[in-house]
Design a protein around this nucleic acid. Structure first.
Lengths: 335, 335
DNA sequence: CTGTTAGCGCATTCAT
DNA sequence: ATGAATGCGCTAACAG
């Protein structure tokens, strides 16, 4: 753990009695080098604790060995799980992830992205966000670009995610199968494809069961906890009758749960509740939440895998990941 | 938003009809330049959408304009809040944060740190973790280094955090004031100073109230949710009687809550519960959790502020941040 | 297989 | 105040 910050390639070239190019060659494996020389180099590297200078390397090679990861808000459990997947997927590769936070705000997202581009990232993984297909394509022309946890029309071949319509359908159908007929839906911002898809799945399940959808039972939320609380207030103040609520993500389900608690309504005795995402915390909700699992870590892994492959010029396409229903204790039969 | 990736300083020098040095000077503000030339440069920069090459810059200047942020596990709400504070505190400065994840594993933490050092970070913010004072000092000799959310002996002048003993004391005293006498404590790994401090605060409050501490009521947890569930099992299987539980962080409090639920014990009617951290989710627990607030975002801001100041060669020391009790509905008087 | 030669784009002397 | 020259540390042709 000695700290030789200023050891350069020529130092070890001298030490190993070879040229700097040869050192570079053994370090990068770009050409064959005699065993003897290679070993001399390697031992010199170890002796002097040589650390290549990333700047010099980047300048000369044009590569940064860096993958940009654009997320929205550190601290969102679901997105963070994807982050962990990405980190894990990059681990062991020669690439290092750098992160930027778009905070679900288009202007900040733009800036964050530019900051990363300025950092000369070799690849980019975008998680969620508002970037349009057009903008994304602009960047995708320059570097491998994968979008995770978000469906972008006209950009599908670079998206890793699940079938939101299907996931939502499963959740709603589960409630219907339990005998519920009046099922409220707390959705997300309708300017987002995912939100639209989840609503579509909900409607599809209802229709299939011959249940007419009721506008009063459909609330547009924001995907944030607080909007779940608000949704309950709206539902209740309109004297709507419902025996179940399906929230389009777990965060809103927590909010719904709290709203219900405030009004003295029990879960699942009085109302059944289903979420979407299966965040780790969902299993610790009181009562544990029935929800639709999105394989978040796997998404991150997959995104990393593809970017890495494309960096190697392999042309691969995203594997299909599937949503599944996780039944816990927040749902029960409707008498 | 045109994409001139290859515009160099000499391009704009030619365009503005000055030398490259002059361009560099106006861009960095390192020397006086005639107004006319400055403006010519600036307009050329705008016209060609010039983006300085970070590698060339880093190579020539020795600075990366990058701050390393070492966290433990993306997805931990409390740590993520600190992260957001750091991001916010760096926003607008010329520095860009890069993150690495130590995953609460010493070896991974080491590697992550080395990876960042290789990136030639100009400053470092360490959040939590296991790095010893000795190791930390090693790095602190090279670059400004601040540790957040963790007290490290012999390194206090570079730590930003709260008084854990006091916070814990407040929590315990609150329960005592409510009439509780048998208060269980679910602590953290005792190889961590914070965990020891929180236990100390608990013991201090008991002692002050003339209550004898009982070993059976003190459980060593891991700071993770699951260990809260386990703690309840241990407490209950030993037929210990207690009317309140104080968990040394919110995560474990969630686990405790679930453990209690599984055993049919109500909160707060049967047992009162207090956490520590005041994660955003604590307000959404059922019932909302009484807890000790740590100003996480402020910690991040403060850490960023100090690193930035030290980078400017100002010698500042961390401001004192204070913990406060947030009383919600998980605690009630003991009859 | 290996050494030599040129840059990569910028900051920073040193002259002027 | 400003231009020319030099070098940061490394990679990638180019010769052998």
């Amino acid at each position: 753990m000695t700290n030789n910050d200023n050891v350069t390639i020529s130092d070890i070239a001298r030490e190993a009695d070879v040229s700097a190019s040869t050192v570079s060659r053994v370090l990068r494996g770009t050409a064959k080098v005699t065993k003897a020389k290679r070993e001399a180099v390697l031992s010199a590297v170890a002796d002097l604790n040589y650390q290549p200078n990333v700047f010099a390397r980047g300048l000369a090679s044009g590569q940064s060995m860096t993958i940009g990861v654009l997320t929205q808000n550190f601290g969102s459990p679901f997105y963070d799980a994807i982050l962990r997947g990405v980190v894990q997927g990059l681990y062991g590769s020669d690439y290092f992830p750098i992160f930027a936070d778009g905070q679900w705000q288009p202007e900040i997202e733009q800036k964050a992205l530019l900051a990363m581009m300025r950092r000369r990232i070799d690849g980019l993984i975008v998680i969620g966000g508002f970037l349009s297909a057009e903008e994304l394509n602009l960047f995708a022309e320059q570097i491998p670009l994968i979008v995770a946890a978000r469906d972008v029309c006209e950009f599908e071949e670079n998206c890793v995610g699940i079938d939101n319509v299907h996931g939502s359908y499963l959740a709603t159908k589960h409630l219907i199968d339990l005998g519920h007929r009046n099922i409220a839906f707390v959705g997300g911002r309708m300017d987002h494809q995912d939100a639209r898809d989840r609503q579509e799945g909900y409607l599809k399940a209802l229709e299939e069961a011959g249940i007419e959808a009721r506008q009063e039972l459909i609330i547009e939320g924001t995907f944030r906890r607080q909007s779940g609380v608000l949704a309950v207030e709206m539902l209740l103040s309109n004297r709507n009758s419902f025996s179940a609520i399906f929230a389009a993500n777990d965060q809103m389900a927590y909010g719904v749960r709290l709203g219900l608690y405030r009004r003295g309504l029990r879960v699942p005795e009085d109302v059944s509740l289903v979420g979407f995402d299966d965040e780790p915390a969902a299993a610790f909700m009181i009562p544990p939440l029935t929800t639709v699992r999105q394989p978040a870590v796997e998404m991150g892994l997959e995104a990393a895998r593809i970017v890495l492959a494309r960096l190697r010029d392999e042309s691969v396409s995203p594997a299909q990941l599937t949503a599944e229903l996780v039944i816990r204790e927040s749902t029960t039969v409707h008498r």
